[in-house]
Simulated assay, not measured.
Amino acid sequence: MTEDNGYAKTAPTRAEVDAFAGATVLEFGTDWCGYCQGAQRHIAASLAQAPQLRHMKIEDGPGRPLGRSFRVKLWPTLIFLRDGVEVARVVRPIDARAVDEGVTALAAAPGGSPSINR
């Protein structure tokens, strides 16, 4: 399920994220970030091919503990999780293919779903 709206101001805790079941994409960034705005069409194009993925857009910045726990340094950063464990990361995607690689890594991870194979 892809969210097309802006980045959420509130985030789950790291413990909640670690307990997620299935495939999840965490997207860290901000609504005012030019890189984030420029990447949205690429992210949307790739994730539209896997609508069953949980996609969470989370505002990041100083004092935001979830982004710090994943050592996010640049925006947007997409963290691809399978059952709460990171299996891939894409930083500042310049095309949909970069995001596709993260989705493919989710499918290849143990417990991966054939429904998200590319």
Rank of each mutant, 00 (worst) to 15 (best):
A11D: 09
P12L: 08
P12E: 11
T13Y: 03
R14A: 15
A15C: 01
E16M: 03
V17K: 08
V17D: 06
D18M: 04
D18P: 00
A19P: 00
F20N: 02
F20W: 14
A21R: 11
A21L: 06
A21N: 04
A21T: 11
G22I: 01
A23Q: 11
A23E: 13
T24R: 03
L26C: 15
L26R: 13
E27D: 06
F28Q: 10
G29I: 12
G29K: 10
T30I: 13
T30R: 15
D31S: 10
D31P: 14
W32M: 12
C33H: 08
C33E: 06
G34N: 08
Y35D: 14
Y35I: 01
C36K: 12
C36P: 15
Q37S: 12
G38P: 00
G38T: 09
G38N: 14
G38Q: 15
A39F: 07
Q40I: 07
R41K: 13
R41D: 02
H42Y: 12
I43P: 07
I43K: 04
A44K: 13
A45S: 14
A45G: 04
A45K: 14
S46T: 05
L47M: 04
L47K: 03
A48D: 13
A48K: 10
A50V: 03
A50R: 02
A50S: 09
P51H: 07
Q52P: 08
L53P: 03
L53R: 03
R54S: 06
R54G: 02
R54Y: 03
R54T: 08
R54L: 07
H55T: 10
H55E: 10
H55Y: 13
H55S: 08
M56Q: 13
E59H: 14
G61K: 13
P62G: 15
P62M: 14
P62R: 15
G63I: 06
R64K: 15
P65H: 11
L66R: 05
L66V: 03
L66Q: 05
G67S: 13
G67F: 10
R68F: 12
R68Y: 10
S69I: 10
S69V: 07
S69R: 05
S69D: 10
S69N: 05
F70I: 08
F70G: 04
R71H: 13
R71N: 14
V72A: 03
K73E: 11
K73T: 13
L74I: 02
L74V: 07
W75R: 00
W75H: 09
W75D: 02
W75A: 07
P76D: 07
P76W: 10
P76N: 06
T77Y: 07
L78T: 06
I79L: 08
I79N: 07
I79K: 07
I79M: 11
F80G: 00
F80D: 02
L81A: 00
L81T: 00
L81D: 01
R82N: 09
D83Y: 06
G84I: 09
G84P: 11
G84M: 09
V85T: 14
E86D: 00
E86A: 09
V87Q: 00
V87D: 00
A88I: 00
R89T: 04
V90A: 05
V90S: 02
V91E: 15
P93S: 07
P93A: 08
I94C: 04
D95Q: 05
A96D: 12
